[in-house]
Amino acid sequence: MSDQNNNKAEWPLWEVFIRSKAGLDHKHVGSLHAADAEMAIENARDVYTRRMEGVSIWVIESKYIHASDPDNAASLYEPANDKIYRHPTFYDLPDELKHM
């Protein structure tokens, strides 16, 4: 949603992958917001490793991740949408509307 949001200037969302020690794969640990890749890596270090030395960090802007469909049949029902962060079923309804 972030890129269609009229309310400007939210820093992009990044997914963070960390190799916790040599010999292991990078593992997805979570996400964060950053203005650019350098900042995303530094923030990942601050947020997800609390500055441990010697770990390897990957970051990728969430919008570039394509995900498999958990249920192929779902494509008949949901519009094609493989962006992990975008879920069109959430509607923004007016506050006055109750019990819905």
Binding site: M1, S2, N5, N7, E10, L13, G30, S31, L32, H33, I84, Y85, R86, H87, P88, T89, F90
Partner: peptide, 11 residues
């Protein structure tokens, strides 16, 4: 971040 996976932005 967890809530963002449900289709709402942090903003």
């Amino acid at each position: 971040s967890a809530a963002e996976t449900l289709g709402i932005t942090r903003d």
